[in-house]
């Protein structure tokens, strides 16, 4: 029983990491109506950026957690203005194919610079420490930190979207970009800011991931699938839903892994398919926050 409770606690706390993976994808889809197939590679790019700042430059974890999102955000803005804005339209194929090509370019550029070796940011023991919850039930201290960061990031995104002029502009542009433009909204700039925000979230997710586990340049596609599953499970277009979806996915994986250690990923995928089959209505009710 305590073994099962431990697994549940682990599953729930990894949900924080998964929610961080999903936050950027959710922003890009919510505002630009675009699924970024390079999203997982953006997270890994964030992880490498954090790794360079924390380890190679020796600045440590906290500066990495600040600098990586800033750099990723700037990259996101440039990417959107220079490339992706040309693809916004009713046809979904061009943005999918272009982000797929981007995914391949990022993966291989990282391979070129960092080789296929595994990397990790060391945090001086916190990542292996744990906090007891009940007698015999404990969760990792670092997992709790990640969960707290996820709550702060998602809470911050929620406040930004619902309480600020920029968030209002984001929502209006997502509703009806043409009318927004006619009121003076510079939509190319707004889309640039949305992608900047999304990639900054990828930067944070990447740095948190880099401490959680070791990673390679090719580790992105798994993260894309997880992020995608999280936003479908949590309800598309709902920013708090990403936290819920992350926790549910983490729990599904924990339960699958408890039945058979090899079934951990499989259980997550099957939970996602089950949501698709049983609650397809939720999928079509897109975009209303």
């Amino acid at each position: 029983m305590t073994e099962f409770l431990n697994l549940l606690a682990q599953g729930a706390t990894i949900g924080g990491l998964y929610a961080l993976f999903a936050a950027g994808l959710s922003i890009v889809f919510g505002i630009l109506r675009l699924v970024n197939l390079a999203h997982g590679d953006m997270i890994i790019l964030g992880a490498f950026t954090g790794h360079v700042v924390a380890t190679a430059m020796g600045l440590g974890f906290i500066p990495a957690l600040i600098i990586a999102p800033l750099l990723m955000g700037a990259f996101g803005y440039a990417l959107q203005r220079l490339l992706l804005n040309r693809l916004i339209g009713k046809d979904i194929l061009p943005p999918l194919l272009v982000t797929f090509g981007l995914s391949m370019m990022i993966q291989n550029a990282l391979l070129l610079v960092f080789t296929a070796d595994t990397q990790k940011i060391a945090l001086g023991g916190i990542e292996t420490a744990s906090v007891p919850l009940l007698p015999g039930v404990a969760v990792g201290s670092y997992a709790l930190i990640v969960l707290a960061v996820a709550v702060v990031v998602i809470g911050g995104l929620h406040l930004l979207l619902m309480r600020t002029a920029l968030g209002r502009t984001f929502r209006a542009t997502a509703d009806d970009a043409e009318t927004a433009r006619q009121l003076g909204v510079r939509t190319p700039h707004v889309f640039g800011l949305a992608t900047a925000l999304a990639l900054a979230a990828c930067g944070i997710a990447g740095v948190m991931l880099a401490v959680w586990t070791s990673f390679t340049p090719l580790a992105g596609s798994t993260r894309l699938l997880i992020a995608f599953e999280v936003i479908v499970i949590g309800g598309i277009g709902s920013i708090w839903g990403t936290l819920l979806g992350g926790i549910l996915l983490g729990l599904a994986q924990a339960i699958g892994g408890w039945i058979n250690p090899e079934w951990q990923m499989l259980a997550g995928h099957i939970a996602f398919l089950a949501v698709l089959v049983l609650m397809p209505g939720g999928l079509f009710a897109q975009g209303r926050r």
Binding site: A165, L183, V185
Partner: peptide
């Protein structure tokens, strides 16, 4: 804008600067 309140809709007019 369907996901904006009445006041938020009005304030979108401020976008023109």
């Amino acid at each position: 804008f369907a996901s904006l309140s009445v006041e938020e809709n009005l304030r979108m007019g401020e976008s023109a600067g």
